[in-house]
């Protein structure tokens, strides 16, 4: 494993030797001693195939899964059981836009609930702020008061992003956020994530099976295989000269739009 990360950059999130084990006989070690650093405003791509443990890692970071090892947020430990204030530091966007919103709540209600529970705005400003966030996420204002059933997949994912942003997190973990979307919509959502990262200084952990998505959005990429990070490098370097055999296999398998290499 190599790591070309500039050590000088301020780490907003650092995980050391993180493991996630699921009960059962025998127990399954989904994540095996993973260490990662994420600098403020950085976009790190976590790539791997299904079952490699990338989603378990994401869930552990968001406090949804108990894990061994350390998660450090701005230099302080972030435990599995979090206070409300600690919980909002890491927010997630999920893969399936059709399951990620409460079917009985409108877009505005979905976002407003976060603001209200965390008391991030005075009561009378909550609705206004919710609309502002939805606007920031690019949801047309005409559909801000509709329920998810009336929204397209892309629009739902925008609401989910606005909900995550409402808590003003330091780290946004996006678990396959565009996998369920059409290509033309995927591009728009990737643009939005890149834009938010730039304007809000958000650190982005983008989890995907699609190396091309990582190539478009991320500065650095970590390749995960069987619960371990097998290679970590800046994206151009990783694409140009993959070191680990698994990374090479993965890259060779990606179908390309253009004449086959060689």
């Amino acid at each position: 494993m190599r790591d070309t990360t500039a050590r000088s950059a301020e780490a907003v999130l650092e995980i050391r030797d993180l493991s996630v084990t699921y009960g059962g006989r025998p127990p399954v070690r989904a994540v095996r001693g993973v260490s990662l650093r994420l600098a403020r405003g950085e976009a790190l791509g976590l790539v791997g195939e299904s079952g490699c443990g990338k989603s378990s890692l994401a869930r552990a970071l968001a406090g949804l899964e108990p894990a061994e090892g350390q998660v450090m947020m701005n230099g302080r430990p972030l435990p599995h059981r979090r206070t409300r204030e600690q919980a909002r530091r890491v927010q997630m966007v999920f893969q399936d836009p059709y399951a990620s919103l409460n079917p009985r709540m409108t877009a505005v209600q979905t976002v407003a609930e976060m603001l209200r529970v965390h008391r991030l705005r005075p009561k009378d400003q909550i609705a206004e702020r919710a609309r502002e966030l939805l606007d920031l996420a690019g949801l047309p204002s005409q559909v801000a008061d509709t329920r998810p059933a009336a929204l397209s997949g892309g629009q739902r994912q925008r609401v989910a992003i606005a909900r995550a942003l409402a808590l003003e997190p330091d780290v946004l973990v996006a678990d396959e956020p565009t996998t369920a979307l059409d290509v033309s919509v995927q591009a728009v959502i990737l643009e939005l994530l890149a834009h938010l990262r730039e304007t809000l200084g958000l650190a982005l952990l983008l989890i995907t099976h699609n190396l091309a998505v990582v190539s478009a959005v991320c500065d650095r990429a970590a390749v995960m295989h069987s619960g371990e990070i097998v290679e970590q490098a800046a994206v151009p370097a990783l694409l140009a000269s993959p070191q680990h055999p698994y990374t090479r296999r993965l890259l060779a398998a990606v179908p390309r739009l253009g004449p086959p290499p060689g």
Partner: peptide
Amino acid sequence: GAAPSLEMPGVLPRGI
């Protein structure tokens, strides 16, 4: 244009 490409790292695809 919307399909992200491995050939051009750092270039965002354009959505429709």
